[in-house]
Write a protein that binds this DNA or RNA. Sequence first.
RNA 1: CGAGUGGCCCAGGCGACCGCUGCGAAGCCCUCACCGGCUUCGGAGAGGAACGUCCGGACUCCACGGGUCAGGAUGGUUGCUAACGGCAACCGGCCGCGAGGCUAGGGAAAGUGCCACAGAAAACAAACCGCCGCGUUCGCGCGGUAAGGGUGAAACGGUGCGGUAAGAGCGCACCGCAGCCACGGUGACGGGGCUGGCAGGGCAAACCCCAUCCGGAGAAAGGCCAAAUAGGGGGUACUUCGCGGUGAGACCCGCACCCACAGUGCCCCGGGUAGGUCGUUGGAGCCCGCGCGCAAGUGCGGGCCUAGAGAAAUGGUCGCCGCCUCUGGAAACGGAGGGCACAGAAUCCGGCGUACAGGGCCACUCGCAUC
Length: 142
Amino acid sequence: MLGCTAMPVPPQLRYTRAMRMVSKYDFERAFKTGGRARGRSVSLIAAPNGLEGTRLGLSVGKACWKGAVERNRVRRVFREAFRLSYAALPKGCDLILMPATPKLKPDLALVRAELEELAAKAWSKRRTPRPAEAARPTKETP
RNA sequence: CGAGUGGCCCAGGCGACCGCUGCGAAGCCCUCACCGGCUUCGGAGAGGAACGUCCGGACUCCACGGGUCAGGAUGGUUGCUAACGGCAACCGGCCGCGAGGCUAGGGAAAGUGCCACAGAAAACAAACCGCCGCGUUCGCGCGGUAAGGGUGAAACGGUGCGGUAAGAGCGCACCGCAGCCACGGUGACGGGGCUGGCAGGGCAAACCCCAUCCGGAGAAAGGCCAAAUAGGGGGUACUUCGCGGUGAGACCCGCACCCACAGUGCCCCGGGUAGGUCGUUGGAGCCCGCGCGCAAGUGCGGGCCUAGAGAAAUGGUCGCCGCCUCUGGAAACGGAGGGCACAGAAUCCGGCGUACAGGGCCACUCGCAUC
C-alpha cells in the first residue's frame, strides 16, 4: 500500500510546567546524586525526584554555541525529543540534558533514540540516597 | 538599452496536525474566602538590526553647602529635540564629466615636543651641482645669486613680461596672501573696493591653550510579602574620646552625620537568607488625514492596542508553491539532493556602529540609439 510513508499520528503529548525542573535546588540535587550517561549528541543526568512523573531540565551553555539562535535550537530539539519520548522514559525521575559536543547540530530522531537509551542507562547508575549499600552488586547494563 | 548616483521598502508564502507562553471568557476541583490547579473556547506571540553596549534620556536608589584645581566629553554655522557625541539645512575644503561623495573643519606671533629615509639644507638660516663678476701659479680662490638641476609628503608665493654681469617682488600685470573699508547674510561666510611687495613650513585624532557641557550607581536598580533554621536585637536621647572618621579624587573654609568598648533613660518588635510578588510593559507609542517648515521636525483631528519569559515561551512533522545550486534537453519542459541570509526580546525609549541571501519601488546623472 501507499500508506507506508504516512507519519504515525502522534497521541496527545503534553509538556507542562509540572514537567520542568524549575528550582535551583532541584538542579543541585540532580548534579550531586544523579547517574550520568553520554552519547554522541546528548549527555544526561538522571536523579530521583520523589514525584509521580518525569521532569526535564536543560543546561546549554555558551560553550556549546556562542550565538543565542543555535543555542535555542539545541534546547528546542531536546525539549521536543523529551515530549515525544515521554512514555519511554523512567518515572519519578529528573533528567538534565546537555549537549555532548560543542557546535552540536541536533537531529530530532537521533536525539530521541539516544535520550531513551541513555535515560535508562543513567537511571540505573543513580545513587539512591537512603538504602544504598544493601543491594548494589548489579551492574548497569540491562 | 548600457553604465552609474541617492533614497525608501520587504526579510520566502499558503495550508494541515501535534506542542509552548501570556491575555480574555466559561466550567470544574480545592477553600470560610483569597490564592492555587485542571478543562474547553476565543484571540495574541521576535528584529531591522531584537546584536554590540558606543553615546543620550526616562525611571529607581544613594549623595547634595561653596571655592580653586584635577578628570572626562565635544569642536564650522543655524536649527530640530526630553536629551545627545544624533539628525537636518547651509558654509568652507577636497574628489568626481555629472547625479553626487568625503570632511573632528577653534587656536601654531603662549609654551613644550616631533618631522624617519632621501637631500647641500627640514626651521634658522644657509648653498651640492649650476649661473655671473673679479683674481689666478689654470689646480682653484674670493665675491654675487636662489631663476635652472637634483631630493622629498613638504624647500621662504605662482605664471608672464621688464630688468640685470647673472639674478631676485627689484619693478609691473593677473592669480594667491595679509591688513583696512563699506555692502549682503541671524550666522558660518560671500562677492567687491582700497592698501601692502609678502609677513616667512607642517603636525594640535602630540602635550597643550580656548570655548561649551558633565554628581554616583544601575533592573542583579529598587519597593513589598516572607518560610525553615539560627537568634536578641533594633531605634532614640544624653555622657565619654580627637591634629578622630564619613559625606568628597586633592586642598582650603564651612556644615551635617557617625563613633566601637562603657554607662544611663525612654520607645519598639523587629532585621536578614531561600522563595514569592510588584517594578514589567500604554509608550517622548504606532497608523491615517490636514496645517506650518526647504528639511530634521512639529501642532491639531481621527483611529488602533501591538510579545512579556524567568534553568528563560515564540517550536516540531508533513504537503504545495517561489528562489538558488547541480543535472537531462535544441527548445518547450523535466529530474535529483541540498540550501533560502545576518541573527533570538529580557526595564523602556532616541540615536550611532556593526552583520546580512535574495528581491521590489521611486527620483536623478552620463553615454548610445530612435522619434
